[in-house]
């Protein structure tokens, strides 16, 4: 990918754009990171503060992905207990506490939605979700974008998303929010696998770089 070098350079710059992302800031001023480190040492009071800071995001993200409120609550509970369980593995130099926690939450939610889907045998054989998405993509791309926008509320997020192409937004909608694998994305959109992988990566790099600029 051509922006490899740029990606690395901007990786450092961008780190400072993220709460707790800057190495200096992290050492001195990422309260969540400190709390997560203490959580890893068994400090339950610290974990409660981590919970209070991030449970809303964990639950909201789970709800966005799995849709069903009861399921979302289960996923959120699993993810948050998992945070407690693996907190000792948190490394501030590998990202912020928020990123650590939401990575766990997202993975849980996506795993759940995939197992639900595979139980129902929907995704690949009957595929109402990707069929709908593909149909919308073909006939009403604006509607897809609008629907996505309606749910992506935060101004900062909207700004990042506005910088994406409609195809990139769609790629993230199907993967990040619906749990498609890169292969499922390629198949549902009828694009080569390499294109699908590159589209996801380009979208994430664009988001990263846009958010870096907003600070």
């Amino acid at each position: 990918m051509t922006d490899d070098a740029e990606g690395q350079v901007s990786a450092d710059g961008r780190l400072s754009a993220v709460p707790g992302g800057d190495p200096e800031q992290r050492r001195d001023g990422d309260p969540l990171g400190d709390l997560l480190i203490r959580t890893g040492r068994g400090d339950q009071a610290a974990f409660e503060e981590v919970y209070d800071a991030l449970a809303g995001a964990v639950h909201g993200l789970a709800l966005r992905i799995v849709r069903d409120p009861q399921l979302a609550e289960d996923v959120a509970q699993e993810a948050l207990v998992e945070v407690w369980r693996v907190a000792a593995r948190f490394r501030p130099e590998q990202g912020s506490a928020r990123s650590f926690v939401l990575t766990i939450a997202h993975r849980r939610a996506v795993d759940r939605v995939r197992s639900e889907q595979s139980h129902a045998d929907r995704l690949l054989t009957h595929g109402p979700r990707h069929a709908v998405a593909a149909a919308e993509q073909a006939d009403h791309p604006e509607q897809v974008v609008e629907a996505i926008d309606a749910q992506w509320r935060a101004a900062r997020v909207r700004k990042g998303l506005a910088a994406l192409t409609p195809l990139q937004r769609e790629a993230l909608e199907l993967t990040y929010y619906k749990g498609y694998t890169n292969r499922q994305l390629a198949e549902s959109l009828g694009i080569p696998l390499g294109t699908a992988k590159a589209r996801i990566r380009d979208a994430m790099i664009r988001l990263r770089d846009t958010w870096e600029g907003t600070r």
């Binding site: 990786a11 780190l15 449970a55 809303g56 995001a57 993200l61 990202g95 912020s96 990263r208």
Partner: peptide, 26 residues
Amino acid sequence: TELVGLREAAATLGAAEATAPPAALR
């Protein structure tokens, strides 16, 4: 190195979904 940045971007997407979690969850 690159993953750190992409994950932070993903986390920003995720954090934008924040809702008030059910009280009983805590």
